[in-house]
C-alpha cells in the first residue's frame, strides 16, 4: 500500500493469472470436480487478508461493523473451505494409488478366504 502500483501493472497480473488459472486445471478427472470446486472455494477465502486490512484501518461505527462482519465471513470461507475439502479427500485416501489399494484389496480377499475355510 506504500508505493501504489499502477492500474496497468495490476491488469497485467490479472490477465496472466487468468491464463494460469485456466491452464492449471485443464486435465481434471470428473471424480475430482467436486473436491476441486471446494478447494478453489477455500482459496478465494484469502479475501480474509483484504478484510483484515479494511478492519485494521476502520474508524467510525459503520466501518467497524462492516469490517467485523467481513472478517467473520471471510474466516468462515477460508477455514471451512479447507476443512470440508480435506474431509472430502479423506475418502479418496486408499483410492487410485495402485499398489496401496491393490494390497488392501488383496488383504480383504485373504480375510474372506480364511473365513470360508
Amino acid at each position: 500500500m506504500t508505493s501504489s502500483p499502477g492500474i496497468v501493472e495490476l491488469l497485467t497480473i490479472f490477465v496472466l493469472a487468468a491464463f494460469v488459472g485456466n491452464e492449471v486445471i485443464s486435465k481434471v478427472p470428473s471424480i475430482l470436480h467436486t473436491p476441486l470446486m471446494s478447494g478453489s472455494n477455500a482459496v478465494h477465502g484469502i479475501i480474509l487478508v483484504g478484510t483484515m486490512l479494511v478492519l485494521a484501518n476502520a474508524h467510525g461505527t459503520a466501518e467497524l461493523v462492516l469490517g467485523f462482519f467481513a472478517v467473520l465471513l471471510a474466516t468462515l470461507n477460508v477455514v471451512g473451505g479447507f476443512v470440508v475439502t480435506d474431509r472430502m479427500l479423506e475418502m479418496f485416501k486408499s483410492k487410485g494409488h495402485g499398489p496401496e489399494r491393490r494390497q488392501e484389496a488383496a488383504d480383504r480377499r485373504d480375510g474372506d478366504g480364511k473365513e470360508a475355510a
Binding site: L10, A18, V20
Partner: peptide, 26 residues
C-alpha cells in the same frame, strides 16, 4: 480479484483470478 484491485493487493488479485478462471473452466 476486484477487492484486490481496490486494495492494490497482488495476492488477492491473483488468488481471486485463479479461482475465477479455473472456476469457469470447471
Amino acid at each position: 480479484a476486484a477487492s484486490g484491485f481496490t486494495l492494490d493487493s497482488n495476492l488477492l488479485i491473483v488468488a481471486g483470478t485463479l479461482v475465477g478462471a479455473s472456476g469457469i473452466l470447471l
